[in-house]
Amino acid sequence: MTARANVLVTLAPKMAVVFVGFLIAGMGITVLPIHVSSDLGFGTFVIGLITGSQFCASLMTRLWAGDFADRKGPKKAVILGLSLAAAAGALYLASLITISQPVLSAAILVAGRGVLGAGESLIITGSVAWGLATVGSQHSGKVIAWIGTAMFGALAAGAPIGSALFAVQGFAAIAAATILLPLLMAAMVAPLESVSGRSSPSASRLSVIRAVWLPGLGSAFASLGYGSILAFSSLLFVDRQWADGWLAVTSFATALVASRILLGHLPDRLGGPFTALVFAIVEAIGLVTMGLASQPIVALAGAALVGFGYSLVFPGFGIAVVRAAPSQSRGMAMGLYSACLDVALAFSGPALGLVGDVAGLPTIFVTTGGLVSLSTFVALFIIRRGQACN
């Protein structure tokens, strides 16, 4: 068996955990804006607020989740994360009970999305730390890319599944699946071998922040495209009176998964910052294409370009983090790195929602394309700094 196949086999259980954790996100993300708009009667600002609450909660818990994985072991972090995801499903059900009071129902949805954000923070951070501990930092690009592949594969699969469930039983079906699937996955993870927590003292948080902040800034700019696709692509299709808006998320995620399967080795081979530079340009082009599209097929092609571009930006900048962070605090470093994504998504949801309310939904994607392009300057700075150090 080749070294690449060995790495894939070792990572498979961690990828399965992430797949289930984000399948429930994929099932809900395309129908939640429609539920909030049609059933509760709110506009894009409230939709962005509810969507952003998940990322805000992730932001507040990422550093703790990474430290928890370092101290207690990544398996415990994963199981706790799955348990919180199930609790989010229970809050979804509670929001339906109060649907006759839209403000209260929306507030409960905010809480549910927040709990889900905390759970996903533990799931993704614990799984990446678990993967790095079992295959080694020399494969850090593959760990980040392939575990991310499971995440976006789940989003791709979740979009049509969620739309089908929503069509049959409404948001209640999404809530039930959000409860059951994480609990089943937690039962399957329980027998797996654990990785012990750290035995040496943790590095100072300041040293971790120094390793993370610049690559994290680049990742934050690039992640705005991901956030726009999740929060507003289905509404763009509704606004243009195009059918099957869930296809935009599926096109994005399918292109991302295909790119990571075929090209996931590039950040380890070519260097993370250079890979991030090239693929961020592609992502920005895809976003502008979506904003200017006059036909659904063009918008779907734009969404696929966004997914293809974003596919290797996050692992590209992530390699710079892994190589600069203290080895005993890689979980914390990856948690903080992921928190940069959460900062972008938490605040961009409401902000871009306001842009949509004022200037129209297509403007959201053109604006985001310009913001994503800023990550190329960050990549260039990291490349030049590395050349100066050599």
Rank of each mutant, 00 (worst) to 15 (best):
I24H: 02
I24M: 10
A25T: 12
G26W: 11
M27W: 08
G28Q: 05
I29A: 07
T30I: 13
V31W: 05
P33N: 09
H35I: 02
H35F: 15
V36I: 15
S37M: 08
L40G: 05
G41T: 04
F42C: 03
G43F: 06
G43D: 14
G43L: 03
T44D: 13
T44F: 02
T44N: 08
T44Q: 08
V46M: 14
V46D: 06
G48C: 05
G48H: 02
G48T: 03
I50Q: 00
I50D: 00
I50F: 01
T51V: 09
T51H: 01
S53Q: 00
Q54W: 10
F55R: 00
F55A: 05
F55G: 00
C56K: 00
C56E: 08
A57P: 10
A57Q: 05
S58T: 15
M60L: 15
M60H: 03
T61D: 06
R62L: 08
R62P: 11
L63V: 15
W64R: 04
W64T: 13
W64Q: 07
G66T: 15
F68N: 01
F68C: 01
F68D: 01
A69S: 15
D70G: 06
D70Y: 12
R71N: 07
R71H: 12
K72T: 04
G73Q: 11
G73W: 14
P74E: 06
P74V: 10
V78R: 05
I79T: 13
G81S: 13
G81I: 13
G81W: 14
L82V: 11
L84W: 12
A85H: 07
A85N: 14
A86K: 04
A86G: 07
A86Q: 07
A88H: 05
G89D: 06
A90Q: 04
L91V: 11
Y92G: 03
Y92M: 03
Y92W: 09
L93Y: 12
